[in-house]
Simulated assay, not measured.
Amino acid sequence: MGLNDPAPFGLFNAAGASPFLLIGDHAGAAIPGALGDLGLAAADRRRHIAIDIGVHGLGHALAERLDAPFVHQHYSRLVIDCNRDPMRDDAIPVVSDDSRIIGNEGLDSCARASRVAAIHAPYHRAIADMIDARRAAGRDTILLSLHSFTPVMGGIARPWEVGVLHWRGRTDFARAMLAALRDKAAFTVGDNVPYAMDATDYTVPLHAFSRDLAYAEIEVRQDLIGTAEGQRIWAGHLRHAAEAALQRIS
């Protein structure tokens, strides 16, 4: 990366005192200067294929309300997807939602390894170091992974306001947060929808499963958090749900 490029990750409220650690794998849309625009039009670089819309602001607002650190990615998932095993082909996609990513075509192993070393590895090292430091200090960690989803995909409407994803390991907190969100009668809450956590996911399995941490992956619909006001509103909803879930498992 060049001197004018962002750092490989952002860290907000590092000294947060709560047990929650927030992460945002797809919170950024930056592209290293050396890669130009990846062959994408400006409109594509603002789409969901490049960034989880709203998660950057949501994560900061929720970190303030929970007094939690927020570790987030500055770079676009189209440069390298930090929620994918870097050895997978789709960690650096050549097509996403019918958009061709010209700048990712024909990469050799050295070009791929360079992106892993510059962006993917430092981001995950930062998360691991923070968890391990908290454990060494006798502090618990509950991992909250923040994502967002489109209101419509493939012409099919997605009616959920929010989804809670879980798979293996300690699912108690995710299930408690699901129940807490469902206590809000106005919400349609998805259980492993619109996406299901599985072997394609990387961040939560890597950091939570291996350390037996409580966790939840949260997906919020993008039209609800596309503005600063929406992000503040949903930070409030998620704060209440997370604190209620913590009480349920304590």
Rank of each mutant, 00 (worst) to 15 (best):
N4L: 14
P8V: 02
L11F: 04
F12C: 07
F12T: 07
N13A: 14
A17G: 07
S18T: 01
F20P: 09
F20W: 13
L21E: 08
I23P: 02
A29W: 10
A30H: 10
G33M: 04
L38F: 10
G39K: 11
A42F: 09
D44T: 02
R47P: 00
I51E: 14
D52Q: 09
E64D: 15
R65D: 05
R65C: 01
L66H: 12
D67L: 08
A68P: 06
H72M: 08
Y75F: 15
S76V: 12
I80W: 11
C82A: 12
R84A: 09
D90P: 04
A91R: 06
A91M: 10
I92P: 08
V95M: 15
V95A: 12
S96Q: 15
D97P: 01
D98P: 00
S99Y: 03
S99E: 13
I102D: 13
E105S: 13
R112Q: 02
R115L: 04
A117T: 15
A118Y: 07
A118H: 08
A121F: 10
P122F: 01
Y123R: 05
A128T: 14
M130C: 12
M130K: 11
A133C: 08
A133D: 14
I142P: 04
I142F: 07
G155S: 00
I156E: 11
I156N: 10
P159N: 02
P159A: 00
E161N: 00
G169C: 04
A176N: 14
A176H: 12
A180R: 05
A180C: 11
K184G: 07
F187E: 03
V189M: 02
V189F: 12
P194S: 03
Y195N: 12
A196Q: 13
D201Q: 11
Y202E: 02
F209D: 13
F209H: 10
F209C: 07
S210I: 00
D212V: 00
L213Q: 01
Y215Q: 01
E219H: 09
Q222I: 02
G230E: 03
I233H: 14
G236N: 11
A242H: 09
R248N: 08
I249C: 02
S250D: 09
